[in-house]
Design a protein around this nucleic acid. Structure first.
Lengths: 197, 197
DNA sequence: GCTTTTGTTCATTCTCTCTTGAACAAATAG
DNA sequence: CTATTTGTTCAAGAGAGAATGAACAAAAGC
């Protein structure tokens, strides 16, 4: 069974000094590192790039919201990666901008320059699941619809009687699956919503 | 949002003659080809190799169970791919061996040699979901457990009071998620089982 | 027994996705 | 307005993992 191989450490060990704030920059060991590794693996099971999960893990392990450049530093990843990763996470609602935009002033003692946004992880399973559904399931539903249309046409122009009936059965099967899924999702959401927070 | 890119056709167009039985070998068009493409995409969302989904799609579109070599021929894939793909599918319970082992005699007119097993797709959503859970979710649960243990240790040896309390909160959060998942799954299974078939 | 055909394993090859890094845009400070 | 710093986009490269195919094992036919 593949899709979840070894938990590999990132190629570039972002080590330079001991650490900066709450957590070490990277190599192994440490609360943050554990979280980074874990979420990196988890999201990969859903076909999401590891680095995206790592960003989430870092935020999850951080007592305070982190800025873009904080993340770049601590993960030792490129700006491009982090930028794209944050976009994905935001589009899924898995991270949110820390409400204290004013934290900008009070919190940065080193004052290296203007920092704009601070991020923190979404903790509500309801929202997290919702984001995954929007990002992964809904595209599939669309794909299913178009499949059904194609298959209908193909079945209609099938000459053999037996084959045509068989194909119509299969089309119905796909529709049934789709229906079950669409019935399930709201229910699932409701369940998560009920217990969450 | 990545993880579901373009629906690409296989690199090698398995075209040689028009077709063999119910369905064309490959290129585009045709009931089978649509199914192959669709399931190839669907499984990829779950981090399963496209070829595995393609095999399922082919079986799904076939009126009669197919043998190993049927699949190799029609998909134009290598024997290695198909062998591994079938193993994955079987281990997830997504395909089953056609009960009519006797079909061997009655069904092969061309009589090229002994054929051993014939495969057909599992259609019950209950079983399909069950297989996915076993293959994907359960490993994650194990990973979660070990994470919790590591994090506990790390938190216990944290000096700062505030940080330690924060870390314990986060650990609890992960546990809550795990619990919710484990509560949900049986329910989900029950639901699928009820409506299925 | 030997030959023929079926299916598996595994090292190699190749593909595709992710990451990178540099050029570019946006915003603030001076 | 210019300089500095922050963040985005995108082409190019590297790396992970899937597909291939040949060698091998297992069965069946003769």
């Amino acid at each position: 069974m593949q899709g979840m191989r070894s938990a590999r450490a990132p190629r570039r060990s972002g080590v330079e000094g001991p650490d900066s704030l709450t957590c070490l920059p990277f190599p192994p060991s440490g609360f943050s590192a554990e979280c980074v590794g874990f979420f990196g693996d988890v999201v990969q099971v859903l076909g999401v790039p590891r680095s995206v999960g790592q960003i989430f893990g870092l935020l999850f392990a951080s007592l305070e919201p982190l800025s873009f450049s904080d993340i770049v530093e601590r993960l030792g990843a490129s700006k491009g990666s982090v930028s794209q990763g944050l976009q994905v996470l935001r589009s899924m609602g898995a991270v949110k901008v820390a409400p204290g935009g004013d934290r900008e002033r009070e919190h940065v003692p080193t004052r290296l320059g203007p920092r704009r946004e601070y991020f923190e992880p979404e903790l509500g399973l309801r929202r997290l699941v919702g984001g995954i559904v929007r990002g992964k399931v809904e595209p599939l539903v669309a794909r299913e619809r178009s499949l059904i249309l194609s298959l209908r046409q193909l079945a209609d122009s099938e000459k053999s009687d037996a084959v045509r009936r068989f194909q119509r059965q299969r089309i119905e099967q796909v529709q049934t699956w789709g229906l079950q899924m669409r019935l399930m999702l709201p229910l699932l959401k409701a369940l998560v919503g009920a217990r969450s927070r």
